[in-house]
């Protein structure tokens, strides 16, 4: 099985530690993961902000890069949801044709668009969030991790309502030796990140995060864990500004931790 890592642009640029943790974890489980270097961004920011043409270009690039792999592992719920939920819609919306038409001149448009639709249909079912890949593909819940800390888990909207990850991430966390998992009140509520929403509606975004932070503080946890670093960048940035002393860690960083090596250096 050829397994590719789609690191995501945010992790690649700002949180390489998460990527290193995924590689460490998968190697430990016997998966020889590859990193196709041509990868960039799934296009979520462009599409969700209203720049569909640019987003479709990036989506097209994504399926070109990953279509030949048997599985694509993504350590980000929202990027995985973007590919799985939105790519088929983009391929069917006619936007794909519009972009191709602009780039290649009218006639070539339809052919290229249907090429994207086919490639997207072929590629998107093979895209897995990390916890899905571990549990559904590899069939493991105990990944041999050790992390002796009090942790609370924020499920993130796109993991919860987009990918329907359910309790996969917490099942993985429950098997981590030494880890004390405390439930997060109001866990299913959005933290207020929402991509460019955080900048376009900063007041509402901050008000939402204030409630999320209060809930996190109420747990008495020392670590807030999630499967998406963009949400964690937002909640973590607020926790840091408010000097709460709570650190945020991606799920992969906790799962990669062992007695000999603790993850989470940011």
């Amino acid at each position: 099985m050829r397994v590719a890592l789609f690191i995501t642009c945010v992790n690649d640029t700002l949180f390489p530690g998460t990527g290193r943790a995924v590689v460490t974890l998968l190697r430990r489980l016997g998966v020889d993961v590859e990193f196709p270097e041509a990868q960039t961004c799934c296009g979520q920011m462009h599409v969700n902000t209203g720049y569909r043409d640019e987003g479709v270009r990036l989506a097209r690039h994504f399926v070109d890069v990953f279509r030949d792999y048997d599985a694509v592992v993504v350590p980000s719920g929202s990027c995985a949801a973007m590919v799985r939920e939105q790519y088929p819609r983009l391929a069917g919306s006619g936007a794909a044709g519009v972009v191709a038409g602009k780039a290649g001149g009218g006639g070539a448009g339809a052919g290229r668009a249907s090429g994207f639709a086919a490639a997207a249909a072929e590629t998107t079912p093979k895209v897995y969030d990390l916890s899905e890949f571990l549990i559904d593909v590899l069939g493991v819940t105990d990944v041999g991790a050790y992390f002796p800390h009090r942790v609370t888990y924020h499920p993130t909207c796109h993991s919860l309502r987009g990918l329907h990850l359910g309790d996969r991430p917490t099942r993985l966390l429950q098997q981590v030796r030494g880890l004390e998992l405390v439930p997060l009140p109001g866990a299913e509520e959005c933290c207020g990140f929402g991509g460019t929403f955080a900048v376009k509606n900063p007041d509402i975004s901050a008000a939402m995060c204030a409630d999320k932070v209060r809930n996190v503080l109420d747990t008495g946890a020392e670590v807030l864990c999630a499967a998406d670093n963009s949400c964690l960048m937002h909640i973590g940035g607020t926790l840091h500004r408010q000097k709460t002393g709570i650190r945020v860690m991606h799920l992969a960083e906790i799962l990669a931790s062992t007695e000999h090596r603790q993850g989470g250096s940011r």
Partner: peptide
């Protein structure tokens, strides 16, 4: 205004 920025790492993942 309400959040600190993450520290930019020395080296990207790639």
């Amino acid at each position: 205004d309400t959040r600190d920025l993450p520290r930019v790492p020395k080296e990207s993942f790639r």
